[in-house]
Write a protein that binds this DNA or RNA. Structure first.
Lengths: 119, 119
DNA sequence: CATCGATATTGACAAAGATCGATGTGTGGG
DNA sequence: CCCACACATCGATCTTTGTCAATATCGATG
């Protein structure tokens, strides 16, 4: 007996439009929309990037710092950040020459809700 | 204020050994161990299979039913179930000729905790 | 405006993964 | 003991993806 009316204000987010896993079987559309978001975090390098940003006290990290944090080339880091950003997991903000990424808390919470059904 | 002592009884579960994303940066080992579990659910077909099983009222589903539920060949379904099982997301039980899968609630809860830090 | 430094994009390539048909394995019934 | 059925494994194929070197873009600064 749950209202599925979250589609009004924000851009259509496959996560918030989606009931918790244990509530109902997922149809093809839901699964197709959801998979890319999960694929985005299902990579060791991206997991590390995300956790570095998520755990940062200032709430944001400059790309220049991320480039040094992992043993990967600059284009590869840039690619991973793009994947995370397009999955709505990271928020991008350009300031001057630098680019800062912060985590999208809403998406993380939705992921939690997907698995738990409680959060 | 969470006790991190879950490594005594059960097989080493990379999820329960892992603090929530927002707590601390993940090292290479943690990320490498965690990624396969997330990869397992980061596929549309496996998402559907998992949700079908998770939403089932009896708490378990026979493979023979899953074979009909998705528009995929029997070997492909079997492969996906194996991936989910090896990621500790599904519990497998053979009864006679039939095989029944149920969700591993612990793993799902751990995933929730990973993203939320609260569950 | 020429240049430098920070990110992003492109193109290429190897590795991983999703899928299927064919075949193997094991269980229960006749 | 043999057959039918449920499920798993194998081998092949096609697509996706992670990675890098090279190059492009874009903003600041002299």
């Amino acid at each position: 007996m749950r209202l599925e009316s979250a589609t009004l204000t924000s851009p259509p987010n496959p996560l918030t439009c989606c009931s918790p896993l244990r509530t109902a079987p997922m149809d093809v559309q839901q699964a197709t929309d959801l998979a890319p978001i999960l694929k985005a975090i299902a990579d060791p390098s991206r997991l590390r990037l995300l956790s570095i940003i998520a755990a940062d006290a200032r709430g944001e990290v400059c790309v220049c710092d991320l480039n040094d944090a992992l043993d990967l080339s600059q284009p590869t880091i840039s690619h991973h950040l793009k994947v995370l950003h397009e999955a709505d997991l990271l928020i991008r903000e350009k300031r001057g020459v630098w680019v800062y990424y912060s985590v999208n808390t809403e998406t993380l919470n939705s992921l939690c809700a997907l698995f738990g059904g409680v959060c």
